[in-house]
């Protein structure tokens, strides 16, 4: 596993990258909240929100193709939402015969579905831009500054630090299992054993990983105590709001408000 496996930061020298992480977090959250407030079928507003998104990704020098690929993550959920096309009362648009059943997509249902899709797709892309332009430790600082409870932020910070180490350990356990499980005589099963046996092996790996993690947390705690930790975790947040941060943040907020205005004209 490569050390970058869990990093989503795209290193560039852009104004967006240099923006204070607090501004980026606040504008991103506002953008997503505002999206949720856009009514179904507010096409002009959707277009304006997309224009804002394009502007940000352009300024951040993040390629559209890359952004599009990452945004596919909303895909599976569209499956859950697609049912509204057929269940929302409205004028039937067509009749599809599917075995013994008749499916009738309605205009209201289609409108709802497309709107959900657009809102979600816009939101997830802005969130992707946030992580692509902000190193995760800076994101953690931003949460500190924004008064997210200290304990929670610190836990997330430790989790981030040990994500790769523990995932790597899990990877080693998986590889060890693979190297010991030969294909069956008939060549069909490379996993071997009954379902329970397989589950047991996997469960033992999880248990193993859990015990190792426990022991590691002890050692890390000792290392913290050795350097003066006494229960109050102190951090230095090397961020100061510059006037350009205020200005760009302000522009973002105004743009988001304008989009709402467009939707309600």
């Amino acid at each position: 596993m490569h050390v970058n496996t869990f990093d989503r930061y795209e290193s560039r020298q852009s104004a967006i990258h240099q923006l204070d992480p607090r501004v980026k977090v606040v504008v991103t959250v506002l953008f997503i909240v505002a999206n949720a407030l856009l009514p179904d079928g507010a096409w002009l507003a959707f277009l304006a929100a997309w224009a804002l998104l394009l502007f940000v990704s352009g300024a951040a020098q993040i390629g559209l193709g890359w952004l599009l690929k990452r945004s596919l993550i909303v895909g599976p959920f569209l499956l859950a939402a697609v049912t509204v096309v057929f269940t929302l009362p409205g004028n039937g648009l067509a009749q599809w015969q599917l075995g013994p059943w008749t499916l009738v997509p309605t205009d209201a249902g289609l409108l709802r579905f497309v709107s959900i899709f657009i809102r979600s797709w816009l939101s997830v892309q802005m969130a992707i831009l946030l992580t692509a332009t902000t190193q995760f430790p800076d994101l953690i600082h931003a949460l500190h500054h924004l008064r997210v409870p200290n304990v929670l932020v610190s836990i997330i910070s430790f989790m981030y630090r040990y994500l790769f180490e523990l995932a790597n350990e899990a990877g080693r356990l998986l590889r060890a299992r693979e190297s010991r499980s030969a294909a069956g005589v008939n060549g069909r099963s490379s996993s071997g054993g009954s379902l329970f046996w397989r589950a047991k092996i996997a469960g033992h790996m999880v248990g193993q990983l859990l015990l190792r993690s426990f022991e590691r947390s002890d050692r890390v705690y000792n290392a913290m105590v050795a350097r003066g930790y006494n229960g109050r975790l102190l951090t230095m947040n090397p961020h100061h709001m510059k006037s350009s941060d205020w200005q760009l943040g302000g522009v973002g907020v105004v743009a988001i408000l304008l989009i709402q205005l467009v939707a309600r004209l």
Partner: peptide
């Protein structure tokens, strides 16, 4: 005190934060 496994010793996300931990506390 420097422990054997540097992954136990370096528990902060960035190098700066780790080296700053002792003096800060």
């Amino acid at each position: 005190l420097v422990f054997q496994n540097p992954d136990d010793q370096l528990f902060s996300p960035t190098v700066f934060e780790d080296v700053a931990f002792g003096p800060l506390h």
